[in-house]
């Protein structure tokens, strides 16, 4: 059973930790949009900015690299396919595979953009607690019609809370079946059914107990909204980021 990646929020008092979560989400979206649209010079400026934030948070390089393992595979894949399939002047040739200069360049730039996105994500997650992120989502959903934002916030809580439990139950079922020789079965449909039916049963049983527990704790959709305070520092940093964004965009 694959291991669950830990949510690597690190409590701290840095500038980024103290920023209002709504500003952080806006910044994250802005940075993501920039990462995809910026020119080369813009990307350099943006990367510099992110590296500065990264250093300020003092995130361990080791955990970052560990988190980037999968990204690395994606990057190699994207770089490889782009270099091969983009039309242009051949640079190297291995048998029938032709690597073009243009391809290598466009692949490298796309990879760079992806790295920027990942970096921004890591910075956001390392400096923002789960409860805060949830509050932020709730606030952004509020003006949207037809979306019960308080319900969504509770659903996010429940999902994050119960994912480890579901994985644990899946692990138990898988081990119980291994011990009874389930692996000998050749029929894949049977294997999937034998594994999933008890898993779904247990999850829905958990859900039914959870409903009782929530009712007994007076669950109501008219809940208290999370509290967030917008400080002037938050606004100033937003303005700075927007100005920077425009500059990066036009570079």
């Amino acid at each position: 059973m694959a291991q669950l990646t830990v949510f690597e929020y690190r409590a701290g008092t840095s500038f980024l930790h103290q920023q209002d979560v709504r500003c952080k989400i806006t910044s994250l979206i802005l940075i993501n949009a920039l990462a995809f649209n910026a020119t080369h010079i813009g990307l350099i400026v943006l990367s510099g900015l992110l590296i500065l934030m990264f250093l300020q948070l003092r995130i361990s390089i080791l955990t970052t690299l560990r988190n980037l393992r999968l990204l690395f595979l994606i990057l190699v894949f994207v770089l490889g396919t782009r270099s091969i399939y983009t039309q242009g002047d051949p640079l190297f040739q291995f048998g029938f595979l032709v690597i073009t200069g243009q391809g290598l360049q466009s692949g490298a730039v796309y990879c760079w953009r992806l790295i920027t996105l990942f970096l921004a994500g890591i910075i956001f997650v390392s400096s923002t607690g789960i409860t805060e992120i949830k509050s932020g989502i709730q606030w952004f959903l509020k003006p949207l019609p037809g979306i019960p934002e308080r319900k969504v916030a509770v659903m996010i809580s429940l999902m994050v809370r119960f994912l480890p439990l579901v994985l644990q139950q899946a692990g138990e079922i898988s081990e119980a079946q291994k011990s009874r020789g389930a692996e000998i079965r050749k029929n894949p449909v049977k294997r999937l059914t034998l594994f999933s039916v008890p898993l779904f049963r247990r999850v829905f049983e958990t859900a039914d107990r959870l409903v009782l527990a929530m009712e007994s704790r007076c669950f109501s959709e008219n809940r208290t909204d999370p509290q967030m305070k917008l400080k002037s520092v938050d606004l100033i940093s937003m303005v700075i980021l927007f100005v920077l964004g425009i500059i990066i965009f036009t570079l």
Binding site: L28, N32, I133
Partner: peptide, 17 residues
């Protein structure tokens, strides 16, 4: 939730990416 980096995507952090 995954897009905003909560620990629900298989590759861990990074969200939007």
């Amino acid at each position: 939730a995954g897009g905003l980096g909560l620990p629900v995507f298989s590759a861990g952090r990074g969200g939007f990416a």
